[in-house]
Design a protein around this nucleic acid. Sequence first.
DNA 1: TTGGTTGCAAATATTTTGCAACCGG
DNA 2: CCGGTTGCAAAATATTTGCAACCAA
Lengths: 156, 156
Amino acid sequence: MKRAPTQKGRKKPASVDELRDICRQAGIKLTPQRLEIFKAISSAQDHPSAEILYERLKKRMPTISLDTIYRTLNTFEKLGLIKRVQLLNDQARFDADMESHHHFICTRCKKIIDFKWPDFDSTKLPENIKAFGKVYGQQAELRGICRQCLKKEESE
Amino acid sequence: MKRAPTQKGRKKPASVDELRDICRQAGIKLTPQRLEIFKAISSAQDHPSAEILYERLKKRMPTISLDTIYRTLNTFEKLGLIKRVQLLNDQARFDADMESHHHFICTRCKKIIDFKWPDFDSTKLPENIKAFGKVYGQQAELRGICRQCLKKEESE
DNA sequence: TTGGTTGCAAATATTTTGCAACCGG
DNA sequence: CCGGTTGCAAAATATTTGCAACCAA
């Protein structure tokens, strides 16, 4: 399977036709399971977990299994069709520096680099945020590939 | 144990003396384990996981157990002494909307609300980021309590 | 002294993987 | 037809919890 070059290309959720093309180009099959999972996630208003998608899909496709959902979500992620909301889903990581700072996360080795960004700190939140509830923290997250991993990629 | 009112108060990592005060005020004991875990995390340059802290602490305190580390990290988080780098460590959540948008996350119910923030999108990254590696995505994350949870808190 | 805390072990939860049957292209 | 994919079960990983012994205040 060919990975999407970066996460930049795509915008709004892909259409089913685009999905078909993307699968063909990647050399993978568009199975009924993949199609249903894709439709479920691209029409979802929330940000469903594998388990939630499983519950929803069982109604339409009673034989689908949870591990197919996991596998398919990983596949779609590699193809650049979906993103996981937070990257560090293996182990929780902690920070004792409570001062305002931001994170660069390497998607390859999961390294986290802190940085300061005063221009961000002083950017005003949109007005409509107030309607969501009470905000008590804001921070920026960059995703990328760190120097070391870039070097490794060259030599592969 | 009394929770910290919000995450706003604290700045740089607390000192051991501050830790002692905070424990006293919260009515919890400052055990040797808590002290060592605190020192380990507040002096760490990376953003260690429970497992990593366990490996480091075993050298100084061979009898310490992994579950004490988990419990203590949760305690410290409630006291506002540390933050977890990413909140959603239970289940991975996915998003098919690849267009630039940002997330408000309710720390109580884990709901995610999307929003647009053009002022953020047009804020230039600090110069020194280039040295970290290649960036291919940036987004803001707000932490707070959503409307529904605020209402629930009132009635508790 | 004593109630909160620890360490152990077991339970729970989440995600991944080996494998034989299956099916989309 | 054939190689990639599925569903099942089992494994691997991460985190939480019940409980008796322990110890900081």
